[in-house]
């Protein structure tokens, strides 16, 4: 599924993103399931606040890590996230 650049990205209210102390990891929780996230994925999802659009997220993360060229990786991850229902656009 393609990411629309104009619409804001929002973490799905049907899922929960949470830090797990026992696993030292961010996880996504949903009915009868759990996905463990790596640090970059968790950072991206936390920025899906229903206000930011793709460009904002890329900009924020590039500034945070003082780097450039993150867009492609971010888009790839967000496409997966959209397909899995972790985020929404509309």
């Amino acid at each position: 599924m393609a990411i629309n650049k104009i619409l804001p990205l929002k973490f799905s209210p049907m899922h929960r993103l949470q830090w797990e102390e026992a696993q030292q990891k961010e996880v996504i929780l949903y009915p009868e399931g759990m996905v463990e996230l790596n640090q970059p994925s968790a950072e991206i999802l936390k920025l899906c606040d229903g206000i930011r659009v793709l460009g904002d997220i890329v900009e924020t993360l590039e500034a945070k890590f003082a780097t450039t060229g993150l867009e492609k990786d971010i888009v790839n991850f967000l496409e997966d996230a959209l397909k899995n229902g972790w985020i929404q656009q509309n």
Partner: peptide, 8 residues
């Protein structure tokens, strides 16, 4: 405390 996270 031990790490259980999904509760049915």
């Amino acid at each position: 405390k031990m790490g259980a996270v999904q509760l049915g």
